[in-house]
Design a binder for these strands. Structure first.
Lengths: 216, 216
DNA sequence: AGGCTATTTATACACTTGCACAACAACGCC
DNA sequence: GGCGTTGTTGTGCAAGTGTATAAATAGCCT
């Protein structure tokens, strides 16, 4: 009796454990910030003990880096997925892209908290700044490509500088509305942000209102 | 000889010391994040010893709260200051407002780092979320007021909902471009962001290009 | 069934953290 | 000029930090 009573455990596959630890890290950061994301908190959340982290990651910093990379990957992946409707008109695709970016699950307070917490350290951490830069430029290039298609369909031939300015402005509109939605989502009715975004972007591009909204 | 050699110090006025400690806190957070802002780091930066912090603030949390309040105060104060040109036309005032918000010192990586670091915790800290909400609504109301003036000068009578949507969109444009500028300022030539912002906002409001840019 | 090995736990350690408290000394007041 | 007030320092402490390492055991292979 009064056995040493060591904790029971199961062995998991390496990839599974790494993902669990990364998810637990993101959860911890979202809930308590970077300061509250201690190895013990993370391990507890992942259902393991703290020592195990060092078996999968060289150190805590590496775990945080991989967690941030995973977050960015998921965000850009979701964002770009909305552009895959091949059969629609460029204008519809752009609208769908905006709509996807201004509704759940991309409008999400938890994701925003994570983004803000990590990006706040971009000024001090060059690796983090570079990761952001790449994600941002990738996103903006996607926007620029769709804008080019939209304008081409309207028989307009913008030069490179014009195109770039449109992409910067549209990116800003989406980012700005995304923040407003994440921070004060309940102040907007469903679909309102997307409607505002689409109208603003079409104004930026000088597009006439869609035919369906005009009198026949 | 080998006297105890206690550190020399000067007594400062209460307000001065509090401000120094708050500034040192913001510097520490900007440089090392919330995790790196320890009482010892902050005190060292302020040129005092750690114990003094407890003489001016009940605890570290209170110091952080006051530092965030000070940051928000300075940001909104600077932003609104650009609207004070009484003698200019509404349209010029709006343009000046945008220009002021999209150049130094408001476009600033350090300020952005601080904003992101603090706002990242808004999801978990209700007091912080409320502080943000108030600042945001105040800013948006300013925007809405100028927009109303601009449209009135154009003899247009927007209803409340229309006005609100314009304010939301314009706020998003400014915020989005602000972020782009803070995070990748060197990718834009001086004044470029402001020009993009003004064009996007005038498009949103359906304003014709200014007369000075049209052929006479 | 029984051992092998790598995953997992548990413990230890040096260091940092926020905070408490007593000693001290700078400055105003008489 | 001495003296009291109190701003300021220095030290101490318990709790928590990341990491190192040894001990244990779960699950695969034969």
């Amino acid at each position: 009796m009064n056995a040493p009573s060591r904790r029971k455990f199961r062995r998991e596959g390496e990839e599974r454990r790494r993902q669990d630890l990364i998810d637990a890290t993101l959860d911890s950061v979202a809930e308590h910030g970077l300061e509250g994301a201690t190895v013990r908190t993370i391990a507890l959340r992942a259902g393991v003990t703290a020592g195990l982290i060092r078996h999968y990651f060289p150190g805590k910093e590496d775990l945080l880096r991989e967690a941030y990379a995973a977050l960015m990957g998921r965000m850009t992946e979701q964002a770009k997925a909305a552009l895959l409707m091949e059969d629609a008109s460029p204008r519809r695709r752009l609208a769908a892209f905006v709509t996807a970016n201004l509704n759940a699950p991309i409008i999400d307070q938890r994701v925003f908290s994570l983004w803000a917490t990590f990006i706040g350290r971009a000024g001090a951490d060059p690796a983090l700044a570079r990761a952001h830069r790449e994600g941002y430029l990738g996103f903006r290039n996607e926007v620029e490509a769709v804008v080019a298609e939209v304008l081409a369909a309207e028989r307009r031939k913008p030069d490179a500088s014009e195109l770039r300015h449109h992409a910067i402005a549209i990116n800003a509109i989406i980012d700005g509305l995304w923040i407003e939605g994440c921070l004060a989502g309940e102040m907007f009715s469903p679909g309102e942000l997307a409607a505002i975004g689409i109208k603003a972007i079409e104004a930026e591009l000088g597009l006439a209102p869609e035919k369906q909204f005009q009198e026949k």
